[in-house]
């Protein structure tokens, strides 16, 4: 410890040429050691809890394993995959999921952006308004699902009660094929419109004021300003929000489970919910794993898209 220090002070000229690389190298080495020591625990946990289970699911997806029957699993290769990809049931669920994702995300985007636009034009009470609008987003899906189930109840739900006092007919929101899916979309929209709003608002407030001023000097119309200044500047951020919501909506399970349990019939069964039924009610673990792996592939594609846009945004 004490040796090197006097050495450098006693013979500065001699050591200067030799020592600088040495501490440099040893520090870089210890840096690498530190990096490994700091990063590996987190990565190991992820490997154990995320990657390993997925690899196991990948293995199971090639077998006819059932969690209840037990016994050895037999390799069936791609049988599970072909069964799923050719199943009319799965096609129906995929269509339901698509309608749900597109419907909910489109509604949220339009509404969320509209609210953000309206708020961004206010000068007073912006903070309070934003806070109020954000409440639904922070609630648990369980609370949201339960509460809307109560409000949409055909008999004593407040929605039908309000419709009744307006002289309109009662609607069986959750027990009719078509309205059930619409209800699901409405509830999801209610919860996640604030998400889009929050991000759109961030984009809108970041638009430099001088651009608008320049445009108003040129007597550009409101619509022109919106189309040529606001939208192009907010769009990249909005796109990220939309993709994020699309991934979340695609994974959705909680809300379906609580609000409709996939019913009536199978009209609100999304892919996630169907996987659950195959895995935990049908106990076809092998098939469910293949189903899950296919869903993971979709999520990976969407995530790649999301991350690519994110990267682009960060580079700009």
């Amino acid at each position: 410890m004490s040796n090197p220090v006097p050495l450098t002070t006693d013979h500065p000229g001699q050591v200067a040429s030799a020592t600088p690389p040495a501490p440099g190298r040893s520090r870089r080495l210890s840096d690498r050691g530190l990096a490994v020591a700091f990063i590996s625990p987190a990565l190991l946990l992820l490997l154990a809890m995320s990657v390993f289970p997925l690899l196991w699911a990948l293995y199971l997806s090639f077998t006819d394993y059932s969690a209840t029957r037990g016994g050895p699993a037999h390799f069936v290769w791609f049988e599970n995959y072909t069964a799923i990809l050719t199943s009319a049931q799965v096609h129906l669920r995929a269509l339901t999921t698509l309608i749900y994702v597109v419907g909910a995300v489109a509604l949220q985007t339009v509404l969320g952006f509209a609210i953000a636009y309206l708020i961004s034009r206010r000068t007073h009470g912006r903070g309070l308004l934003t806070t109020l609008f954000l409440v639904p987003m922070m609630l648990s899906q369980v609370v949201v699902g339960l509460f809307w189930k109560f409000m949409l109840d055909a008999q004593f739900g407040v929605i039908n009660s309000m419709l009744g006092s307006l002289g309109l007919g009662q609607v069986e929101w959750l027990t009719r094929q078509r309205t059930a899916l619409i209800s699901l979309i409405v509830v999801d929209t209610w919860q996640w419109t604030p998400f889009i709003m929050l991000i759109a608002l961030a984009g809108l407030t970041a638009v430099p004021k001088y651009l608008y001023e320049a445009a108003s000097i040129d007597r550009a119309s409101e619509w022109f300003r919106f189309r040529t200044i606001t939208l192009p500047l907010v769009w990249p951020l909005l796109l990220i929000a939309v993709l994020f919501r699309a991934i979340e909506a695609f994974r959705l399970f909680d809300l379906v489970y609580i609000l409709t349990s996939g019913g009536p019939g199978v009209s609100t069964e999304t892919l996630s919910f169907h996987v659950y039924k195959v895995a935990f009610l049908g106990f076809n673990t092998g098939t469910a794993s293949a189903y899950g792996i296919l869903m993971v592939l979709v999520v990976i594609v969407l995530t790649q898209l999301y991350l690519r846009y994110l990267n682009k945004l960060k580079e700009d």
């Binding site: 987190a42 990565l43 992820l46 809890m49 995320s50 990657v51 390993f52 289970p53 997925l54 196991w56 699911a57 199971l60 969690a67 991934i247 695609f250 994974r251 399970f253 996630s272 919910f273 996987v275 659950y276 895995a279 673990t285 469910a288 794993s289 899950g292 792996i293 869903m295 993971v296 999520v299 990976i300 969407l302 995530t303 991350l307």
Partner: peptide
């Protein structure tokens, strides 16, 4: 790291359950 967070929970829970 981020993409592990995006995995559908219903899918992850099957092998986790067995594990």
């Amino acid at each position: 790291i981020l993409s592990t967070r995006f995995m559908p929970p219903v899918v992850v829970v099957i092998p986790i359950f067995l594990m």
